[in-house]
């Protein structure tokens, strides 16, 4: 195995493109090193992207935020403006692993590891985030939900990697929330998860909504029927029931050691309801 720590994006892309064997990006390493330890992967090349310009910072851009691909979870939590604008995204990212893992893990890594249960991904999808991709060609921006292709697989091409995630500007009375279910209070992989992003009008009526679910399908689900259940409502019980039913119906989970199909379908609806209430309150709505 070779370890490289390039100083420019171009050099990183060149290293990745030239590698004939297995290569992996190293930012926080909280997935890659676990996979190496367990013998799941034996990379020939590790490209540490932490020295690349701008990859460890959060910068304001067009009213939104550009989060570098090597920004750790703990750093997100310390950014007050980001937390105020996107509390659901930050809380989702902060649920990844322990305090120790938070010192290293990144949203970009969480996304590119492509686990169906990745915590930050539903929140990013609900937020309508985009990612910037560098590679052999020109940089390009894509919607975050286009990255995961299935468990452990992404749509990134040879030599490509994510350099930043962009969270857009917010209209007034907007907020998001993320909830996952785990058996313990910490340290588990999500059994089911839901992220809700809402905008309200002055009367507290939902004018825009995005609902994304995690751990209930091979990739994150953006559920339009669930969003539709909320739009136009003031989060009345009937709307929440419709939301919950839409989420349970959209979920296509599997039975595994962490949960059954029936359990996941049930719980994802419950989580969506609860997350919607939190987001609604954060956006200034009164129930």
């Amino acid at each position: 195995m070779r370890y490289e720590k390039p100083q420019t994006v171009a050099e990183a892309a060149r290293l990745l493109s030239a590698e004939k064997g297995l290569s992996r990006i190293l930012a926080g390493g909280t997935d890659v090193l676990v996979q190496m330890k367990s013998g799941l992967i034996e990379p020939d090349l590790i490209v540490d992207i932490k020295a690349l310009p701008g990859l460890r910072s959060i910068v304001a851009e067009a009213g939104g935020f550009r989060v570098g691909a090597a920004v750790a979870g703990a750093q997100l939590a310390e950014d007050r403006d980001l937390k105020k604008a996107w509390p659901g995204v930050v809380e989702a990212a902060n649920l990844i692993g322990s305090t120790q893992v938070q010192g290293r893990c990144t949203m970009a890594g969480n996304l590119c590891n492509a686990s169906p249960a990745a915590d930050s991904v539903p929140a990013l999808v609900a937020a309508g985030a985009t990612v910037r991709i560098a590679g052999p060609g020109a940089a390009r921006d894509v919607a975050v939900e286009t990255i995961p292709a299935g468990p452990g697989k992404t749509t990134l091409k040879k030599g490509e990697f994510v350099t930043s995630i962009f969270l857009p500007a917010r209209p007034a009375r907007s907020a998001d929330a993320y909830l996952r279910f785990i058996p313990r209070s910490e340290m588990d992989i999500a059994v089911a998860a839901a992220a809700v992003n809402l905008t309200l009008d002055a009367e507290g009526r939902v004018t825009a909504a995005r609902v994304a679910l995690g751990a209930v399908a091979p990739t994150v689900l953006l559920v339009e029927a669930a969003a539709a259940a909320l739009i136009g409502s003031k989060l009345e019980e009937a709307a929440l029931e419709k939301l919950s039913a839409a989420c349970s119906a959209a979920a296509k989970p599997i039975d595994d050691k962490r949960g059954s199909v029936a359990y996941r379908k049930d719980v994802v609806g419950v989580l969506a309801k609860r997350a919607a209430r939190i987001a609604y309150t954060r956006a200034g709505g009164k129930q």
């Binding site: 370890y3 720590k5 190293l26 926080g28 390493g29 909280t30 090193l33 676990v34 330890k37 590790i46 540490d48 932490k50 750790a72 703990a74 692993g97 322990s98 305090t99 120790q100 893992v101 010192g103 290293r104 340290m187």
Partner: peptide, 24 residues
């Protein structure tokens, strides 16, 4: 990274040293 027995700080930030490459 599940047990924390290897906890150290890296530039003041708490991390699991089992999830950091020595090269880093």
């Amino acid at each position: 990274g599940d047990c924390g027995a290897c906890s150290v700080t890296l530039n003041g930030r708490l991390v699991c040293s089992c999830l950091v490459l020595a090269a880093e």
